[in-house]
């Protein structure tokens, strides 16, 4: 211990002899250790029981759903029917400036439906009735007696 130096040597000797008072702490700690272990074991058993009940419930529910046909039907429905998609709004090509929209065969404008509805058909040309030719025979006139 001479390597330590006199002051450290004395302090180490003092620490060796310092028993800090033993009292009845050893027995108390023994009881505390056993109580902690028992408490931990009880907690583990509770957790295991809870997990078992949960697993059995899940198993029972799944079995019931399978046997009753609910589960296969749900699986089929999920596989077969894709969720309905909302149709996209078609893009209307924009023409050059001043161009209002697509033209019909005779230059009529085609009204473009707003909101994705079907486009209106071009209005058909108006019918022009030919003029009646003059009658070759004079119209019968009434004769006076």
């Amino acid at each position: 211990m001479s390597a330590l130096g006199p002051e450290l040597d004395d302090a180490v000797n003092a620490a060796r002899g310092d028993d800090l008072g033993s009292g009845g702490l050893a027995d108390a700690t023994r009881e505390r250790v056993l109580a902690s272990l028992q408490q931990r074991g009880q907690r583990q058993r509770t957790m295991a029981a809870f997990a078992t009940v949960l697993a059995l419930s899940l198993l029972g529910t799944t079995s019931w759903a399978w046997v009753s046909g609910w589960l296969p039907a749900t699986i089929d429905r999920l596989r077969g029917e894709a969720p309905a998609r909302v149709p996209d709004v078609p893009d209307v090509p924009k023409g050059p400036k001043g161009h209002e929209g697509p033209k019909g065969p005779k230059g009529q404008e085609i009204a473009v439906a707003q909101g994705g509805g079907p486009p209106l058909r071009p209005r058909p040309p108006e019918l022009v009735l030919p003029e009646l030719a003059p009658a070759s025979e004079p119209a019968p006139t009434a004769t006076r007696p």
């Binding site: 620490a15 800090l20 009292g23 702490l25 050893a26 108390a28 700690t29 250790v33 902690s36 931990r40």
Partner: peptide, 24 residues
Amino acid sequence: LRAFARKLTGDAQVAEDLVHDVFV
């Protein structure tokens, strides 16, 4: 174990806690 714990911590009560934790 208690002797070592007491010398290491320098405190009887804390040493008991250390001994307790070791055995748990």
